[in-house]
């Protein structure tokens, strides 16, 4: 971690560093530093388990309203003292604090839901045969964090590995074909051109 990182990382422990005002002034002038600081803030939120329960879909309206209000107030005030400007910059910081937490929460929620679905759809298995402590945790998380009006901040989870190209996507079909391929690979005793288990190890993790 560089000295600059050290200065910016105080959101990790939620205590302002020495010369916090100076640091904030530096951040105000550099958008890259602002982004970096926000990342530290998000990491701090996660480490302290301060994730919010849900995402408010009206949040963006509140943000826009607040920004407009700030802009208007700046327009009506010809000269802004340094301290006040620092205080404004905290908008980007104190104000974004809950936003950052919400973003992380949303991402976690999306991932947990996407992970939960394939497990539930496992080929013909009853729930009893696959329930584990982790699944229960995931189920609880999914139940707690997704609310009717909640929207994910990021809905895209990068696929890893191979997926079947299907004429029409049917729930459970990817897993079904995977299980067939595992058995085909295992029970056919022919050359198959290459190391056949590579196909199995190559399955998309989200399946």
């Amino acid at each position: 971690m560089t000295d600059l990182d050290d200065k910016l990382a105080f959101p990790l422990d939620d205590h302002p560093a020495e010369n916090a005002d100076e640091n904030l002034d530096e951040v105000i002038g550099d958008v890259n530093l602002q982004y970096r600081m926000r990342r530290y803030q998000m990491i701090g939120e996660v480490m302290r388990h301060e994730l919010p329960d849900a995402i408010d879909t009206e949040f963006h309206s509140n943000v826009m309203q607040r920004i407009r209000a700030e802009a208007e107030s700046q327009n009506t005030t010809p000269s802004v003292p340094d301290n006040a400007q620092s205080a404004n910059s905290i908008l980007s910081w104190a104000w974004l604090k809950p936003f950052a937490g919400l973003a992380v929460a949303a991402s976690v929620a999306v991932v947990t839901v996407l992970l939960w679905q394939p497990i539930k759809q496992e080929s013909g298995l009853s729930d009893d045969s696959v329930v584990s402590a982790e699944q229960l945790k995931i189920q609880q998380l999914a139940g707690q964090q997704i609310q009717a009006n909640a929207v994910p901040v990021s809905t895209k989870v990068q696929p890893v590995g191979m997926r079947w190209k299907l004429e029409s996507e049917t729930p459970g079909l990817q897993q079904k074909l995977n299980s067939y391929l595992v058995n085909h690979t295992e029970y056919s005793s022919s050359m198959q051109g290459l190391i056949p288990q590579a196909r199995v190890a190559g399955f998309d993790t989200q399946q």
């Binding site: 190209k165 029409s168 005793s189 022919s190």
Partner: peptide
């Protein structure tokens, strides 16, 4: 499962009671 071969290549046929809501068709992976 029925396994077929020509000595080098192989393919299997899986038959089970229909559980998925699929109309069938082609699929591929690699």
């Amino acid at each position: 499962q029925m396994v077929f071969t020509d000595g080098l290549a192989s393919l299997s046929v899986f038959i089970e009671r229909q559980t998925l809501d699929t109309k069938g068709g082609s699929s591929s992976m690699g």
